[in-house]
Design a protein around this nucleic acid. Structure first.
Lengths: 293, 293
DNA sequence: CAGATATGTTAGATGAGCTTTCATATGGAC
DNA sequence: GTCCATATGAAAGCTCATCTAACATATCTG
């Protein structure tokens, strides 16, 4: 595209509005400027093109033959722009909002609240992708991820949604009331872990327990881990917030707790502008985190 | 057309240029601005639309899916504008230049010089309309008129091309060497006058000679009047400049001369901008009036 | 690693485009 | 005709959108 020789777009717009309204005053109102502004723009355009586009006869205007010619083509062009922008906005508005998160978060936090969001924003189509995999936030693909961590990811924006520690918990029915000083002493019990993750063995390694191979781990879909944990099928590691109630009632026991500052679930988005549905979702998340813990 | 909600046209243009060049720097060069200007415009557009349009990765850019969508439609729209402007300019350039003038002026002044104009501007198509009728300068129709008078016409622009008095002349062979003190004494001679005009009787009335009906007038096409005058077929009234040579040689005699300030031939155009071919013609006229009288 | 070539970001300059104001022109109501 | 409502025209001056300048940073190439 060669941009040379094209008159100021604003003057073209002004003229197009004038051709439409056949009045500087009306055109000015349509463009939200004064009649004088429109008049000046049109005169500038006439000067640029070296031709008379409108004839002024006192009150009222008329297009010259040349003006009419230019106007018809310009009208098409500006309507193309209109359409382009409208189409874009519509696309932005209606494209489903893709959210990814861990299955545990989905089951324990998001699903119980999600109908409220659908009620608030019936026009926003949600696509939830609960998966243990860390999904790329590619533009045009996933809009937002909810991840556990300390908010220290490069190249993305992270805002804490839920502050909670990472805990190793088990049903009292499984481990009784014994005190466990040493993580190694937990190797005697069966463990539950989400398919495709290895948080347990990583935690063990962090604690200095090397014998990961000795672990008796049952891998199962993420949404089943908490149920198994409560039933006493095994020990597991999870965010404390999701089992807080069970801990309070004494049904579950906290065996070890990672107390690292900043631990919790984060809203992770691409840097830059958020499209309206994403904005709505993020602010809904934050509102619910404040009110309902 | 509803103009609300459309982002700044300049930012749309900047983005379109970026989408085309896939580089702020190149786009800036194409738009004749700095890379920073383009960058800012695009960022403003992203803010307005609430979406990320381009991803910056160090050196080089890439459009997001949304950006690509918008860009394709915008490209069409801006090319429409391009076409509209180009078409207009072409039309302006190639539409024949319509000129009207009196037949006398055409024969005596314009035709002897016109081939020079065609040589200078072979691309400009000329349409000459030599007629006694006073033609309206309607936009899109007649571009310029050459009229005799004193430059006092309302609603048009008039610039003197040729200063010359209005004279009543006759061949010496017709009227001899007698002195004529009184216009009335000329009634004895035959008169020549252009078809469709009555300048002679109007001149008579201005001189206080009422008996217009007594005039012996031969009406003939304008381009034949001067020839008849020189042959001695009758007295006529005309602009002095066209018969100056005959007067100098003594072949024609000036019987009366209207010495009113400002008398002459005028270039008469519509107020406002002149399209390029008109500009070229007018300046050619003035150049030749200066050099060749 | 140095050099060339991108983009990012900010502060500050500039001018396109605007509003304001007053003058003028026109048409309709009376 | 006069008055009033509603146009455009022209000029002065303001202001904010837009640009440049300058420097920092990132990436590819030789």
């Amino acid at each position: 595209m060669d941009w040379r020789g094209i008159p100021s777009l604003n003057s073209l717009r002004a003229f197009s509005a004038v051709a439409d309204a056949l009045s500087f005053s009306h055109a000015g109102r349509a463009l939200n400027v004064s009649h004088a502004a429109v008049s000046q723009q049109v005169r500038a355009l006439e000067k640029h093109l070296g031709a008379t586009l409108v004839t002024r006869d006192g009150r009222g205007l008329a297009l010259t033959a040349e003006g009419a010619l230019l106007a018809t083509h310009l009208e098409d062009a500006f309507q193309s722009i209109r359409r382009a922008v409208d189409l874009f906005a519509e696309e932005e508005q209606s494209r489903p909002l893709k959210v990814t998160m861990t299955p545990t978060f989905a089951v324990s936090w998001l699903m119980p609240r999600i109908s409220d969001f659908r009620l608030d924003h019936p026009d926003i189509e949600l696509m939830l992708n609960p998966t243990a995999e860390v999904v790329d936030l590619r533009p045009g693909d996933t809009d937002v991820a909810i991840r556990f961590g300390r908010g220290e990811w490069a190249g993305v924006e992270a805002e804490q949604l839920l502050a909670t520690n990472f805990v190793v918990v088990a049903a009292r029915s499984l481990v009784g009331d014994n005190e466990f000083q040493d993580p190694e002493s937990l190797l005697q019990f069966p463990w539950l872990q989400e398919l495709g993750t290895n948080e347990v063995s990583m935690w063990m390694q962090r604690q200095g327990v090397i014998a990961a191979r000795k672990l008796n781990v049952t891998h199962l879909p993420g949404y089943m881990v908490l149920d198994g944990l409560r039933r006493g099928d095994g020990i597991s590691a999870t965010a404390r917030a999701f089992v807080e109630t069970d801990i309070q009632t004494g049904h579950l026991r906290v065996l070890f707790e990672d107390e690292r500052p900043g631990s919790g679930y984060y809203i992770v988005t691409r840097p830059g502008m958020m499209r309206p549905p994403l904005k709505a979702f993020v602010s809904w998340l934050k509102r619910h985190a404040r009110f309902h813990g």
